[in-house]
Design a protein around this nucleic acid. Structure first.
Lengths: 150, 150
DNA sequence: CTTCCTGCAAATCGTTTGCATCAGT
DNA sequence: ACTGATGCAAACGATTTGCAGGAAG
């Protein structure tokens, strides 16, 4: 899989915006290129720490924010309000199918906004959000019905 | 408009769950019955304080949480991650059209899940989220194009 | 009366900021 | 060398918790 392309893209975006390409940022790109789904700041911190034990949380936050602002990452608040990031696919519009257990995320191209929606009011539409949450095949195997822990 | 019904419903739900009906909770129900859209904990706090100046933030949070857990309120994280609440419509499934300026919210019945979606993977679907963000008619009048403040 | 609810204060969590040092260009 | 990036510590905002007094049932 040409995942290295994602790394290249991210680094290119950073260079283009005048950011310096530090080792941490290189590693960050790699982490997102290899990630299957969304990553929380904490996830990123843990992963980055395996390579750079001295890395700090605020550096992670700073970089995640900069990368989001310049469009290299997509920022996203989960159903439960948790903040997540993922490498941004800039090539086409799509939505996400997210595993609520392992958070593995697949994309699909169907978009409800393509329909002729009969919306109330006369809002000027500027954005939308459509996500489907479920349990991926692997997680279904692992825990046939043990999802409730109270 | 039979908005008082919302108050009655909310109080009924609380009673049913063994909660005591305090003045604050009664006022809370009224606040949500009269709200046009989503309310943040802070919004609720401010509104409640006009009636009960001594009310505290944690009481607001506690009650919002309890009411959400027992289904009287719907909890919701906005696109920007902000936590909001609204009286829960238990009668039918619907989605929301939200004004990004004043947050006035309209509901509509179309649901993309009714379509024959061609989804990847073999996820067991358990939830979904579909919201449309825009600018309501009134807010369009008020600020024809002044939405960006940096 | 008893138990639950409230308000206060303090703790906690996630995220951001100021500053001195270090590394990329 | 210059300037931006990092790590540390501390600030910050939102939310939660422990506790003593007060109100609902």
């Amino acid at each position: 899989m040409g995942e290295t392309q994602i790394v290249k893209d991210m680094i290119a975006v950073m260079s283009k915006n005048g950011l310096r390409i530090t080792d941490q940022r290189r590693a960050l790109s790699r982490i997102f290129a290899e990630a299957e789904g969304y990553l929380s700041p904490k996830d990123v911190y843990e992963l980055l720490r395996t390579e750079y034990p001295g890395v700090s949380f605020d550096t992670v936050y700073r970089n995640l924010r900069m990368l989001s602002e310049m469009g290299a990452l997509e920022q996203f608040y989960f159903l439960d309000g948790g903040l997540k990031f993922t490498a941004n696919c800039t090539t086409h519009h799509h939505h996400h199918l997210i595993c609520v257990n392992c958070e593995k995320t697949l994309t699909f191209d169907y978009c409800p906004m393509e329909q002729q929606l009969n919306l109330p009011g006369r809002y000027k539409i500027i954005n939308h959000r459509f996500e489907i949450y479920g349990v991926c095949e692997e997680c279904q195997q692992e825990s046939p019905d043990s999802q409730n822990e109270e």
